[in-house]
Design a protein around this nucleic acid. Structure first.
Lengths: 205, 205
DNA sequence: TTTTGTTTTTGAACAGTGTTCATTTATTTT
DNA sequence: AAAATAAATGAACACTGTTCAAAAACAAAA
């Protein structure tokens, strides 16, 4: 008797359709301008149905931002081939920045917007699994660097946060348009140039 | 006949009262949850009046964020007493981070929220004067550092952007709650610790 | 003082928002 | 075929930013 299984499949299918519609609209118009009614229109259901699949709007965008972390993490996959941890750290930075510049809206959702984090706070899961995983990945690499003699006199946790902050700062000032009005000339190259300066500094440590 | 003068004064006064009310509500509930009707209620006028003093909601929050830049810049005033540019640069970083941590909502408005920048884009002023001024201040200090022999092999503009990015990253990940869920322990000290790591690095350059 | 002209202020209206929930429709089980 | 369960609806609630004809308040002229 496969009826409950089929029902389960159908539920999952509709959930996925909601998410796909939400993603389409979100990439078109951003989080704020994507309304529940817009999503409902696109999947040709009534607005109410969405609340049978998601607690609220935040949960939808939390689910979307998970997809972003999958994308980012899969890009990080190539790093296994970089054996020296210092080179790997720099390659990580490059991938991180590249991802952000190529998917600014997704990056914004993952690391700037409050919606997904609000959902983590309001649900009973005590932790932001996605972010935690990515941060650990960075910390492990930095740990290896320290083991190889780099970053002497530095504390691993604080240094990891600093390095994350640096790349996040580079891309988030750009995404939130704080540099296009300050460095109007070279606004298209400044993030890359800043990252290169950062690598120069890392090489000295 | 001072009637037009008095009228001018009264207009300016009401404008100021709108701004004060907006600031009160904004610091209480944030930008999104502060509505035009809330502001109107607080000053005991009808909602429509606000549109005789401001083009739209963004202009109100742009005006508010200007106040934040005044605050920040006046804090930077003490830096004139720091003669060595490298020490001055570090002191700037400390003041910047301190300002952000003590006024997270104002910092958010100044450097993260899109509202004030949207207003700059939509008005005819081609530039974000407030940000430009602060950035120049930073760049001038870094220029002096270079003149004294620091930061060899670095390009001034890109390096300035990198340093700004670093401190911005440190505080903005915290303000947007990306570190309290990743580094739940020591979430209250991580920004300070990260900044200290940064200073350690700067000392080596 | 009354009338005319100007400026300031109002508040209803528009088109939207997230969210809830009694009611209806569809499907499955008895 | 009837009863029970699950899925889906759409009206309603309390909001939002913004506009604009109409009203009220005030100043100048008669």
């Amino acid at each position: 008797m496969g009826i409950p299984e089929r029902k389960e499949r159908e539920k999952e299918e509709l959930r996925e359709r909601i998410l796909t519609a939400a993603k389409t609209l979100f990439l078109e118009k951003g989080v704020e301008k994507t309304s529940i009614r817009n999503i409902a229109d696109l999947i040709e259901y009534s607005p109410g149905i969405i609340y049978h699949y998601f607690q609220d709007k935040n949960e939808i965008f939390h689910a979307l931002h998970q997809g972003g972390f999958h994308q980012l993490m899969s890009r990080m996959g190539v790093l296994t081939s970089v054996s020296h941890p210092m080179e790997r750290l720099k390659a990580m930075g490059t991938i991180y920045v590249q991802f952000a510049m190529e998917n600014p809206d997704m990056y914004d959702l993952m690391f700037i917007k409050e919606a997904p984090i609000d959902h983590v706070s309001n649900s009973n899961e005590e932790q932001w699994k996605e972010g935690f995983g990515t941060f650990n990945f960075l910390r492990d690499t930095i740990k290896e660097c320290i083991d190889k003699g780099h970053f002497q006199g530095h504390e691993i946790e604080a240094l990891s946060y600093l390095i994350w902050s640096t790349v996040h700062g580079l891309v988030s000032l750009h995404i939130r348009r704080r540099c296009e009005v300050v460095l109007a000339h070279k606004q298209h190259t400044i993030v890359k140039e800043g990252l290169e300066e950062f690598f120069n500094i890392l090489d000295k440590l």
